[in-house]
Design a protein around this nucleic acid. Structure first.
Lengths: 131, 131
DNA sequence: GTAAAGCTTCCACCGCACTAGAAGGTCAAG
DNA sequence: CTTGACCTTCTAGTGCGGTGGAAGCTTTAC
């Protein structure tokens, strides 16, 4: 299976697949006589796994670490569980931050509604955002 | 006021202030005989405005656009209001995305708790994340 | 035989907000 | 007079997940 066919199967571009190889997510495959990459069918499974893991919010570096454990012949379940816990905590933190930003923006929105543009002087650039 | 004093006043590094100039947020100030940047006191206000606007989640490009309007002699209130509305919508969208990711991660966490590592075979790399 | 599609490599760039390093000029204090 | 803090410019790198172009092979279809 050449790179174009694999890309079509996985719903990726050939560029992305080469990038994954470069990033250490895919082992360099054997080559045809002409130097074309010649993938085994299992590579599609691997790409599907990468997609699923990305959908869960894992980074490529984390996915690479999971694949490395599996490639080393061990089940990566424990590591995956840790990563999930860790990401869940990060997502919660990020949501809390954004909720704060949201509140600040809503407050600015109210202030904007109450602002007369005649009160906006040069000195503070824009009274809505200042102070 | 030279760049070091301005940086100390604003709580920034000299590098960041030069970067702001390069990014079009600050006009190139006059220079001393030795070629040092020599800022008027109002620049501190401008930097404080940039800080406040950043705290509201605006990007430097957006802040630059606000400053450009003010520098053009107009009150930027209307533009600022639009940007706030726009960002509020973006933040809401982002929170919704993260809430979805959070739910997905929580679901994976439950699945992980129910997974026996003996069931994790090579073929699907990690059953927790697959499917 | 020829044209199009597909493959190869390499280097460079996207956004975002800085940060780091190199190599040098200037100024005040001791 | 020298040390050290402060200033200048320039280039380049950070993290993240790719995307883009150029220049040149190979394969496939007609």
């Amino acid at each position: 299976m050449r790179i174009g066919a694999l890309a079509a199967t996985a719903g990726l571009t050939t560029r992305t697949i080469r990038f994954y190889e470069h990033a250490g997510l895919l082992a360099p495959p054997p080559r045809t006589g002409a130097g074309y990459r010649d993938y085994p069918a299992e590579t599609a499974t691997r790409l599907a796994f990468i997609r699923d893991a990305q959908a869960a919010g894992l980074t490529l570096a984390e996915i690479r670490s999971i694949l490395a454990i599996r490639d080393g012949g061990h089940p990566p379940c424990r590591h995956v569980t840790d990563l999930i816990d860790q990401h869940l905590a990060q997502v919660d933190e990020r949501i809390a931050e954004l909720t704060q930003t949201r509140a600040a923006l809503a407050s600015l929105q109210r202030r904007a509604a109450a602002t007369d543009s005649a009160d906006c002087h040069d000195t503070d650039i824009c009274t809505i955002l200042t102070g």
